[in-house]
């Protein structure tokens, strides 16, 4: 009994480490898909790892007058992202970490990281930092209700906000065509795109001052600090990807902790994330970046979709 408890915690830690370690690979895969769609020859899938190694080797330059907040923020951001990586069921559902926190805590982890990045961006007193922080806050204020509405739709179906229990509930019922899930999935995808700073809302591969949101906030960071923040950002993308993949297509995830089930779980999540990466690459290639003042329209559309999901749950699926 003692031993199995220990083994469960060990597996949970291993799952978290796997998510953190795979996060740069997902970004590399998305970039490779995009490059192929643009008719470029793609960079190696390991390029994000090389970038991170480069950042960690470089010297850290901190602006004069930057307070402790500026130095502490990269660690806080990465820490909250690692915690949220621990909460999300990647390979198996029946792990002790799942009981620690539910999806509302997950959202607040993201909010905490965002709060500190915005403070650190304003800490150095540059114009770009403040601008990026204010933009990020505007976008997140609109994105968060949409995300919560989408996950509440799931929670109302499964009668729990716990992610593992939700996935187990969905697996028990098999394939059910729920209209609410279609809307919630679309809403959550749009929120994920906005929150992880991808195209229509933010372009991850540019430093053009008029358009950047996330990059403007971290403009003052260098070396190790930048590496930590970049990594945290990749983990965030991965967490959203896993959330969408495992909540809406839960099949394949391990519900028991046997080696075979875990093996299938690993293969399943890798397959699902590869497909999601292709979808995201196609989406980003076909769309142009929106003007910042059009972003509220995009996010209110995401909110409308999530709201429709909730309404169709109440109207169509119960009673």
């Amino acid at each position: 009994m003692e031993l199995s408890l220990f083994a469960n915690w060990f597996l949970a830690g291993l799952q978290t480490l796997l998510l953190i370690a795979l996060a740069p690979l997902l970004l590399g895969w998305i970039r490779a898909c995009k490059a192929m769609l643009h008719n470029h020859s793609p960079a190696s899938l390991w390029q994000p790892y090389r970038d991170l190694r480069k950042f960690f080797r470089k010297e850290v330059v901190v602006a004069d007058g930057a307070s402790w907040l500026f130095r502490a923020t990269p660690y806080i951001v990465l820490g909250t992202m690692i915690l949220s990586a621990g909460v999300v069921p990647l390979v198996a559902t029946d792990l002790p970490t799942a009981a620690i926190a539910d999806v509302i805590v997950l959202t607040s982890f993201f909010a905490l990281a965002r709060f500190f990045s915005a403070l650190a961006a304003m800490d150095t007193g540059t114009a770009f930092g403040g601008m990026g922080a204010s933009r990020e806050m505007m976008l997140s204020a609109l994105a968060e209700p949409a995300m919560l509405m989408a996950v509440f739709t799931l929670s109302m179906t499964a009668n729990t906000t716990n992610l593992s229990s939700t996935i187990e509930y969905l697996l028990q019922h098999g394939l059910v065509l729920r209209p609410s899930f279609i809307f919630a999935a679309l809403g959550l995808m749009m929120v994920a795109i906005a929150e992880t700073g991808r195209i229509p809302i933010d372009n991850p591969s540019t430093h053009l001052e008029l358009t950047m949101v996330h990059e403007a906030m971290i403009l003052e960071y260098s070396g190790r600090h930048l590496g930590l923040i970049e990594w945290a950002h990749q983990i965030k993308l991965m967490v959203y990807g896993v959330l969408i993949a495992n909540l809406f297509i839960p099949w394949g995830i391990a519900t028991t902790l046997t080696p075979e089930a875990l093996g299938i779980g690993v293969l399943a999540i890798i397959g699902k994330l590869m497909i999601l990466g292709v979808v995201l690459a196609i989406y980003e290639t076909t769309l142009a970046k929106l003007r910042l003042f059009r972003a509220p329209d995009y996010l209110s559309f995401a909110f409308l979709l999530s709201l429709l999901g909730m309404l169709s749950h109440v109207i169509l699926e119960v009673g």
Partner: peptide, 20 residues
Amino acid sequence: MNIANLSHYEQAIFVLSALV
């Protein structure tokens, strides 16, 4: 009436009506 107890055809009607 829970949607999980219906057949897939009936669920498809709900999906389509939501899409309408």
